[in-house]
Design a protein around this nucleic acid. Structure first.
Lengths: 121, 121
DNA sequence: CAGTATCCCTCGGGATACTG
DNA sequence: CAGTATCCCGAGGGATACTG
């Protein structure tokens, strides 16, 4: 997605590349919401659009397509009339959960820190 | 930094906000490189500019300022002539390491997966 | 050395209208 | 319902020149 600018130190690069890979997969304004929404259960397109507040059909479609390409999300077409489409997380998608939890915990700690530090001496 | 769009489900929001907080701190094109570079040791401004390949003084300055505001990086002015400025990670900055490691591990796994999947049947 | 000030451009994403 | 096609805008970031 985003281009990986090289660092002069090759040791750094070995660490940076996979971190970038991971972050790129969460990149974009809506991917996180979509993943979290799907963590709570399978959803249909319109259903997601209602749940992910403010997203347009265009963006939902684009982001889902990227997530599908990365094998995090599975798209299933049900042969009803009119067709309904169901989106679900793959096992691989669920494997992101620990990463999200690590981010969440750090974020919570950070928020606490900011609040504490703002208090009067 | 980026605006947190609310999700209709308040349960989701509680998880999302801290994750966004964490990701926002790593946001921007260069922050990750800068942090990794500082993980390897304290650096002066020009030294960092040489190490973080391709960054301009403008961007290095901006990103360091943000990192400093978030208490991840400490700026120390040494009273030499001309002045030299030393940047270092705070303990708090170092507390990001487990998060980065979680991202790195997932990224490595992902890369392996992509390669495997591309092989002929 | 350690930055700031200007100008410029790309591109992610919004709004809206349309389709099978 | 489940999307696609167009048009458009602003913020993030590059290049370059300048300063204490």
């Amino acid at each position: 997605m985003t281009l990986n600018h090289t660092m002069s130190n090759p040791e750094c690069r070995r660490h940076l590349l996979p971190i970038r890979d991971a972050l790129d997969i969460l990149s974009g304004k809506w991917k996180l919401q979509i993943l979290v929404s799907l963590l709570l259960g399978n959803k249909r397109f319109r259903e997601m659009q209602r749940e992910v507040d403010g997203i347009t059909a265009r963006m939902l479609s684009k982001e889902l397509k990227e997530l599908e390409m990365n094998r995090l999300v599975k798209r299933t077409v049900h042969d009803t009339t009119p067709v309904t489409v169901e989106y679900s997380l793959t096992d691989y998608g669920r494997s992101l959960q620990p990463v999200l939890t690590a981010l969440e915990n750090w974020g919570l700690e950070h928020r606490r820190r900011i609040l504490t530090e703002a208090l009067p001496v």
